[in-house]
Amino acid sequence: MARTFRRKQSAHPIADLNVTNLIDLGFILLVIFMIATPLMQQEQKIPVNLPIESVSAQPKPEKERSESITIQADGTVHIGDRGYSIKQLDVEFARFSAETKPPVIHLRLDAKATAQQFVTVMDSLKKHNLTRIAFDTQVAR
């Protein structure tokens, strides 16, 4: 009787799953989000003492493009983080109103700013038909 020294052929599939690539992908996405998150929060760079309102239910904002206008107590006006004079504001507002869908204007007014500064900016907004305005305030604690 002859002896065979070959191994028996197994017909079952290998059930190992290599997850190393998935773990690498997860860490890469984590790093990307850690880097990108601070870049998305550039609106709040200018420190402003906002007026205080009583506690009320706030409507949830829609996902639309918005521009932040900050009026500080010393009279400087900022769009985003760039300072502008009143004449330069007219140029920027004209550019906003020329767009097919103008942005929502978030008006941030320092509590110590004068009413004249506020009225001047509002007149310029009305002149360029930018009527979608939200006023940023602090909530009383």
Rank of each mutant, 00 (worst) to 15 (best):
A2S: 13
K8F: 09
S10R: 13
N21P: 02
I23P: 00
D24A: 11
L25R: 07
F27R: 07
L30C: 14
V31T: 10
V31S: 05
V31M: 10
M34G: 14
M34N: 14
I35A: 15
A36D: 02
A36Y: 11
Q41K: 14
Q41V: 14
E43H: 11
P47T: 15
N49A: 07
L50E: 03
I52M: 11
E53Y: 03
S54E: 13
S54V: 01
A57K: 12
A57H: 12
K60F: 03
K63S: 03
S66T: 08
E67A: 14
I69F: 04
Q72E: 06
A73I: 07
A73L: 01
D74I: 04
I79V: 05
R82G: 01
S85W: 04
S85G: 12
I86N: 14
E92L: 00
F93T: 05
F96H: 03
K101A: 11
K101E: 13
P103S: 08
P103N: 06
V104E: 15
V104G: 13
I105E: 01
L107M: 05
R108K: 15
R108F: 13
L109D: 15
D110W: 02
K112W: 07
T114D: 06
T114A: 12
A115R: 11
Q116D: 13
Q117R: 04
T120Q: 12
T120N: 15
V121L: 12
D123V: 00
L125I: 06
N129W: 00
R132T: 04
R132K: 14
R132P: 03
A134C: 11
F135N: 05
D136I: 10
D136L: 09
T137Q: 05
Q138M: 05
V139A: 15
A140R: 08
